[in-house]
Nucleic acid binder design. Structure first.
Lengths: 221, 221
DNA sequence: TTTTAGTGCGAATCATGGTTCATTTCTTTC
DNA sequence: GAAAGAAATGAACCATGATTCGCACTAAAA
């Protein structure tokens, strides 16, 4: 016999699979969801269209993998950021800033992954991704409320408000393009202050909360 | 010759055109943007598919007409609401409530019109619609700032934040379905308080601002 | 009543883009 | 290096849904 399911083979399979996802990511980052077409992705990855189907049963599975990849990366980053915060209110501020900075840096990709719908099964995953992000915010808000650092409130609603605000102000198609880094930092800070006021932190700066994005810094992918 | 462009003919033409837009609206309200297919719209309007093209040169023109129709209606409503407010801060509160109430009442339609993209020329109009709504908010915020009723701030950013918050919390696919009218009213009030705090009104209720949706009330279409 | 432009019809046509599959080209193993 | 299974290829295929267009019908004008 020939060709066993050896470790090396599996490695290569995964590497190529990832390459396809990366190609899709690059296209989405450049031109949004519509640019993710099998032919384009394949060309970008340097393979034939049919080959994509050796790695993904359907396009929506590929898109799902992309959504998962991007979302997990962002979730990990904001959890890390939250963990390093000195207190409950700082944690909220730091997480908003971290996520906003990431979202701004990859506006189109973020929009494609979280805000576009394509009518396929991937949409469900998209919703799940939004939910995960919002849940992260909600958890921190709830903790702050529990510790009496914030007034009683509907934490899920507050979290969704944060999410929606960042998306609309910094990520959406109507957001100004913050070409200069300084402009982006300023916008992120302004958004942060708005959402913090929204949950009841009316004097974030006076309290010494970090409201500056830790920018620029290296990115992991 | 026969068949002049008489008044009666024009009337009928416009009536049928409107009927097609209404059919599209009904479909979008029920099932979102994807449901707007020429065949479906035609069936709903009781005509043949080809007939739609006697009234609209292309699907995207039909969608554009729908977007314009819905947006103008909402804009008129919030302008009316703003006009009746006793002061600059009340105007902001009243407009948010008015728009939020309308958006919640027709969630899917609002989402289809403002938040969905379909890759056609109608997308530009969608953006314009969002811009118009946000501009309305911005104007009121700027007026309040000018009158020193609100702290100095980036009014465009604040307006976008309001828009995004309402969309995400009340309209988007992750918003809970406020089946009971009371639940909807409560959610609208909560959202209103959040966005008002966001622009610097930290004690809306204490100031006697209206934060209750004027609900239920008749609807015009 | 007879014209004839306007209107409606809907099956056929097009365009787009995902998916399949017979064939060719590797890789591994002996 | 030969055999055999795995992977790659890309042109053909298919599904969806917008758009066209020849024909029939209606209603205003003569």
């Amino acid at each position: 016999m020939a060709y066993r399911r050896t470790e090396r083979v599996i490695q290569r399979f995964n590497a190529r699979r990832d390459a396809i996802v990366q190609a899709a990511q690059a296209l989405a980052a450049e031109s949004g969801m519509e640019a993710i077409q099998i032919a384009h992705v394949a060309a970008r990855a340097g393979i034939a269209a049919g080959t994509v189907y050796r790695y993904f049963p359907s396009k929506s599975d590929l898109v799902a993998a992309l959504i998962t990849f991007v979302t997990e990366r962002d979730l990990a980053a904001i959890r890390r950021a939250a963990g390093g915060a000195p207190g409950p209110l700082s944690a909220i501020a730091v997480v908003i800033i971290e996520w906003a900075a990431r979202a701004v840096r990859r506006r189109r990709l973020t929009w494609a992954v979280l805000a576009t719908t394509d009518g396929t099964a991937a949409d469900a995953l998209r919703l799940a991704a939004r939910k995960s992000l919002a849940a992260e915010f909600e958890r921190l808000i709830a903790a702050a409320v529990a510790g009496a650092h914030l007034p009683e409130q509907n934490c899920a609603l507050a979290a969704a408000a944060m999410f929606g605000t960042v998306m609309e102000v910094l990520v959406g198609p109507l957001a100004p393009s913050y070409d200069s880094e300084a402009a982006a930092r300023a916008a992120i800070q302004a958004v942060t202050l708005v959402v913090l006021r929204g949950v009841g932190i009316i004097d974030a700066r006076a309290r010494g909360l970090v409201v500056q994005a830790p920018w620029p810094r290296p990115d992991e992918a």
